[in-house]
Amino acid sequence: MIPITRPIKRKAIKPGVAGFLFTTPWLLGFLIFTAGPMLTSLYLSFTKYDLSTMKWIGTTNYQRLFTEDPLFWKSLQVTIAYAILTVPLGIAASLALALLLNQKVRGQRFFRTVFYLPSIVPAVASSLLWMWIFNSDYGILNWALGLFGWSGIEWLADEKYTLYAFAAMSLWGAGGGRMVIFLAGLQGISETYYEAARIDGASPWQQFRSVTIPLLSPVIFFNLILGVIGAFQVFTQAYIMTGGGPNNATLFYALNLFRNAFEYFKLGKASAMAWVLFVILLIITAIQFWGSKRWVHYEGEAK
């Protein structure tokens, strides 16, 4: 145990005070890097600001975004399409993968590692790697598709295909991370539930529907919330691979915002865009929480 190195001499700090003191690094960080900047950003969104002069212009930034900025709408549309394409598919695929691995297969650790590896590859490197895979003349994707008789798809240059290319990349890059979380959730479900279901004569599908899904629903919900937020913040891949092109087909919202802020120095407009993004995410998250009452099951409910 702990040796007594010195007698207690100082007057002991009250536990409540000590607890608060231990959390102050976070509190300070929150005030300096989150709360303060949030308010500042809200203020900036009503100004015209280019790092040298700042002028209050009321709601002009918002009005312009909504009424006369086709790129704003384009970037919103691209991002929403990407989220709809990748979030449900990504969650379903990761869950399926976790279910496969949870069957006590041999080499579970090996497979888990293989599926997890892409999620630790740096975004710049994985973007460069996938650009080469998507290369329409020499890439392996078109070579593989060629074996099935498809030819010459311009994955990153034809706006019909770019979003699918980004979606494929995200399945590879984010699938494993989610899978590991699902696997942990699955392994936390007690075997007794399944035994009880089998005694009642439940088929594997019924067990999945009535035991696995309800007990895993909080984890699914958690992944859904973070998945949507993540989809709205895609930046690096678009910046490196396409620069937003072709014809703005990959002008993701975060890329559009970054350009307005740090390339065109329209910091007021960019702040307005950030707040629009924030409000959109708040609304989507609120809807998800509201909807979750119907399908997310918390054991015990107590906190």
Partner: peptide, 19 residues
């Protein structure tokens, strides 16, 4: 603190840059 996990970094990016 948990709620800040849902805050998109873009909201604070510009003022933090100004700091």
């Amino acid at each position: 603190m948990l709620a800040t996990m849902m805050l998109p970094g873009q909201v604070t990016m510009i003022p933090v840059f100004m700091i």
